[in-house]
Structure formats: structure tokens, C-alpha cells
């Protein structure tokens, strides 16, 4: 596990993080920095406050409190000393940094015409560490293959935030693109994969080049709105499989429909903890009712335990399984 993201912290915070045990550092999921309030980390689904010596505690009283200077430096470093180039990112509320890690920002918003123009006085940061876990999709991928027709099924992956949707999606893209199907008898070649990466999370692109290994036959449309991106991909890049994160708006559903009719397999994710959950969202529920998806995968995690359930298009349970590779929070 590389710790490339450590260089982006101001020295005071970096030294505290370096005092953490190696195992903890490797499994960090989030580092939350709030000006003049306790420094918090999330690892393996649990939160801790950090004191000056890297000690963990659940009591905020003893924790290190990042100063104004700390937050100012952090912002300077994560914006590559150029906050003025981040107007679009500030409108969306997060910055993607090298390595595909994402930093969420809060502060005082500046409005223009009723919409958020950008964020000023940024005082709260949530650094989400992206992980490339090869093999995260090993368990699920064999179920997503339509062996008769030699294609990947239309799949919707559901899970609440922080359960590993994006990590799973990234590994699916990689394995489909390489043609490693987790089955020695299957001699299919790799397929053309198109990723619409609206928030630069799946591929972690820097200047258009993926930071993660997403496979040799994968094209990434970085920072593009999903609905528009899907249409652009279909028209210009002739993908076999389209991969898209967090669909939910009506235009997304429309674009998914378009892709299905063009004979392209779609693997999408959505927030939710069960298929019933998305019934309340008109755009998605229409897709469910029309049986557009052939497979649903629902991820869930309790502490270190991680599991998934698979349902077919008619919402019948196909498979319920526990953890995959060791390291319970592989989907972090």
C-alpha cells in the first residue's frame, strides 16, 4: 500500500499520522480535519480522535486540534498551490488529488443566482483514501456473466456510502478489460470498457490519464456528467461495457435505457441498502419495474465483516455470501 497521500498534509498533521501503527495506516479510510476541532480518522468502519502523539481515543477532549495555519497549508497543498484552477471542483465541493483520493470540502458557500458559485473560508476537510484492491470483484464477477450470449449482464450495484462500491466497480472494469473472468474454462478475450467518471473517483485521472489500473481496453471520460457522458461514449467509443457510478437522476435513467437498446452492457451503482430502497426514486424505480437490469448486487458491511447479496432481474435472491479475500474492509 503506497502512502503517497501523506505528502499532501502539512507537517504537523503528517507527523501525527506517521505515529499511527502501520496496520492502522494501511487501513485508513477517512481523515477528517476541522479547523480548531478534534482531528478524526476513520479506519475499518470505526472512528477515532487523534492526539498529538498519534494516540487513539474516543474522547474529543484530548485530541489534536488543527489550527488555521494547518488548514490553510492543507488547502494550498491539495490545490497544487492554485485554488483558482479549482472553480469547478469548489462548485461541486470536492477536489480529486493524485492517486484518485478525494478531498471533500466545507466552508462558507458563495451563491450566484441561487446556485453555489464556490466555497470560501474552507475550514473542514474529509480526505477519503482511495484503494485499489485487485481481486475485489473476484467473488461477484462470475455471476455477472451471461455465458450463453457471451456478454456481461446489465447490473446495478447497491450499497450505502462507504461500503466499497467504487472499489468494486474499478476492479470490475479492470478484470473485464483484461479478460480475467475468474474461470479457467472461460476463454473470452477482454472487452472494450467505457467508464464515465464524473467525480474522477473510479479511475483517479490526472490530466486525463487513469491513476489506477483500469485495464488495457478501457476508455475513461473524466469529469463528465453521467447522462451526457454515456451518450458520448456510445456514439464515439463503441464500448462493450459501460461503467458508471451513482446514477439517480431522470436523465441518467434515460441514458441507461439508450445504452441497453444499443446492445451495450451497463454496470452502474446507486446509493441504497436494498432494491426496495430505490423504489422511492422515480427514475430508478422505472428501470427496476421495466426489468432493465438483469442482476442486482447489494453490498453491506458490519465493522470488519463484509458481504453481498445477488438478485436477478425479477428480484429473486440468487446468492448470499460473506467476505471475499482476507482483510475485512477490502471494499473500503
Amino acid at each position: 500500500m503506497t502512502l503517497d497521500w501523506l505528502g499532501l498534509f502539512p507537517e504537523s498533521i503528517r507527523l501525527i499520522l506517521l505515529k499511527l501503527p502501520k496496520a492502522m495506516l494501511d487501513h485508513l479510510e477517512e481523515i477528517r480535519i476541522r479547523e480548531e476541532r478534534p482531528l478524526e480518522i476513520n479506519a475499518a468502519g470505526r472512528h477515532h480522535f487523534l492526539d498529538r502523539d498519534g494516540g487513539l481515543s474516543l474522547h474529543p477532549g484530548e485530541a489534536y486540534k488543527p489550527t488555521r495555519e494547518d488548514t490553510r497549508r492543507l488547502l494550498d497543498l491539495i490545490s497544487n498551490h492554485s485554488l483558482y484552477t479549482m472553480e469547478e471542483e469548489l462548485r461541486k465541493g470536492f477536489i480529486t488529488i493524485p492517486g484518485g483520493h478525494r478531498v471533500g470540502l466545507v466552508g462558507r458557500t458563495v451563491l450566484s443566482g441561487g446556485r453555489v458559485e464556490h466555497i470560501r473560508d474552507i475550514s473542514g476537510f474529509n480526505v477519503r483514501i482511495a484503494k485499489e484492491i485487485r481481486g475485489a470483484a473476484d467473488e461477484i464477477l462470475p455471476f455477472l456473466l451471461d455465458r450463453k450470449r457471451g456478454r456481461v449482464m446489465h447490473t446495478l450495484i447497491l450499497s450505502p456510502p462507504q461500503q466499497g462500491k467504487t472499489t468494486l466497480l474499478r476492479d470490475l472494469a479492470r478484470q473485464i478489460s483484461y479478460g480475467s473472468w475468474g474461470n479457467a474454462q472461460l476463454q473470452w478475450p477482454g472487452l472494450k470498457v467505457g467508464i464515465i467518471d464524473e467525480r474522477s473517483e473510479i479511475a483517479g485521472c490526472q490530466r486525463g490519464v487513469p491513476g489506477f489500473d483500469v485495464g488495457p481496453r478501457t476508455d475513461v471520460l473524466d469529469g463528465c456528467p453521467k447522462a451526457e457522458g454515456m451518450m458520448m461514449m456510445i456514439r464515439s467509443m463503441s464500448p462493450d461495457v459501460l461503467i458508471v457510478d451513482e446514477i439517480g437522476r431522470p436523465e441518467d435513467a434515460e441514458a441507461v435505457n439508450e445504452a441497453l437498446h444499443a446492445g451495450i452492457s451497463v454496470i452502474a451503482t446507486a446509493h441504497g441498502s436494498s432494491i426496495q430502497d430505490i423504489g422511492g426514486r422515480p427514475a430508478l424505480s422505472a428501470l427496476v419495474q421495466q426489468r432493465r437490469f438483469e442482476m442486482y448486487a447489494v453490498l453491506c458491511r458490519k465493522g470488519h465483516e463484509r458481504s453481498y447479496k445477488l438478485y436477478d432481474g425479477g428480484q429473486r435472491t440468487l446468492q448470499t455470501a460473506g467476505a471475499g479475500p482476507p482483510g475485512g474492509d477490502a471494499y473500503a
Binding site: L75, S82, L83, Y84, E87, H118
Partner: peptide, 10 residues
């Protein structure tokens, strides 16, 4: 102040 604010400010 270089690099720490939006374009107009810079």
C-alpha cells in the same frame, strides 16, 4: 496570497 483564492481575487 498567490494561489489561495479565486481568480478575481488573485
Amino acid at each position: 496570497v498567490l494561489g489561495t483564492s479565486d481568480r478575481q481575487d488573485q
